[in-house]
C-alpha cells in the first residue's frame, strides 16, 4: 500500500437478505483528500461506509485503513483504528440524554481520558465555534433544529482531531441553504484540520464543490471515479443520467 493511500477497499462484496448490495467495490483514498461517494438511494453507499467503520463484516474483500485490514483484526486493533476516525452519522446520533456541551465533550472525556474541565471547556468552545454553533451548549438534542443537530454532531466528530472523518449523508433532510452551510463547514474544517474525508451523498451538484474526487456506486460496483470535472464529462450513460440537471 503506497504511503499516501490512507484507505483502500479491495473487492468488497456484501449481500443482505440474499441480495447482493456490494459486488466487488474497489477504492483508494489518498491522505488529506475528500472523496464523495455518490449513487442512487439503496445503491449501498451507507453499507460501504459501515464497512469502513468496522460495523459490518463483508462476505469477501478487504478494508485497509492505515495499512490494517479491519475486516480481519481483533477488537483491540480495530478500536485502535477507530480511534483515528470521526463519524458524522446521517441522523447525527447525538446522545439524547446529554446536552450539546456533554455530547461534544464526550469523546474528550471517554476516548482521550481528559479530566481537566478548563481544557475540555476550551476545546468544546473551539469545536462549536468551528461549526458556528456557540451559545447553545446547555440545549438538548430534542431542542435543536435539524441543521443545528448536524453541526453539533460535526463538532463531536472532529473534536479529537481525527485523521479520517466519514460523513454519512450529512445534508439529508435539510433545506438548500442549510445544505450549503454544512458543505461549507466541511470544507472549512477540512482546510483547517487536513483530515481525509469520505462523504456519502446524493446531493448533486453541491457535493462537487466539497470534494476533491468523486466515485459513483451503481449496481454494487464503482462505475466511475475521478475529479468532479471528470465526472461531469463522463461518457458512462448511468453517470451522465445521475449527475445531469433535470
Amino acid at each position: 500500500m503506497p504511503e499516501d493511500i490512507v484507505i483502500e477497499v479491495k473487492g468488497l462484496r456484501k449481500a443482505l437478505a440474499a441480495k447482493a448490495v456490494l459486488n466487488g467495490v474497489d477504492l483508494r483514498i489518498r491522505r488529506g483528500e475528500v472523496l464523495a461517494v455518490i449513487g442512487a438511494s439503496g445503491a449501498g453507499k451507507s453499507i460501504l461506509l459501515r464497512h469502513l467503520m468496522g460495523l459490518m463484516l463483508p462476505d469477501s474483500g478487504a478494508v485497509l485503513i492505515g495499512g490494517v485490514d479491519i475486516t480481519s483484526v481483533g477488537l483491540k486493533q480495530l478500536n485502535k483504528v477507530r480511534s483515528s476516525i470521526g463519524v458524522l452519522f446521517q441522523s447525527g446520533a447525538l446522545f439524547d440524554s446529554l446536552n450539546v456541551y456533554e455530547n461534544v465533550s464526550f469523546p474528550l472525556r471517554e476516548c482521550l481520558g481528559l479530566i481537566d474541565e478548563g481544557k475540555i471547556g476550551r476545546r468544546v468552545k473551539n469545536a462549536l465555534d468551528d461549526v458556528n454553533l456557540s451559545g447553545i451548549e446547555h440545549k438538548y438534542p430534542a431542542e435543536l433544529s435539524g441543521g443545528m443537530k448536524k453541526r453539533a454532531a460535526l463538532a463531536r466528530a472532529i473534536i479529537t482531531n481525527p485523521d479520517i472523518v466519514l460523513f454519512d449523508e450529512p445534508t439529508t433532510g435539510l433545506d438548500p441553504l442549510l445544505k450549503r452551510a454544512i458543505h461549507a463547514l466541511i470544507r472549512k474544517n477540512h482546510k483547517k484540520y487536513g483530515f481525509t474525508g469520505i462523504i456519502v451523498s446524493h446531493e448533486i451538484p453541491d457535493i462537487f464543490e466539497v470534494s476533491d474526487r468523486v466515485a459513483m456506486l451503481h449496481g454494487g460496483i464503482i462505475v466511475e471515479e475521478g475529479t468532479p470535472e471528470a465526472l461531469r464529462n463522463s461518457k458512462i450513460p448511468i453517470v451522465r443520467e445521475f449527475i445531469s440537471p433535470l
Binding site: 467503520m53 468496522g54 460495523l55 478500536n79 477507530r82 452519522f89 441522523s91 446520533a93 471517554e110
Partner: peptide
C-alpha cells in the same frame, strides 16, 4: 438513531 453505533465507532 445510530447512538449505539456511535459508541462502537468511538472505540467504546
Amino acid at each position: 438513531s445510530e447512538q449505539i453505533d456511535s459508541y462502537y465507532v468511538m472505540a467504546l
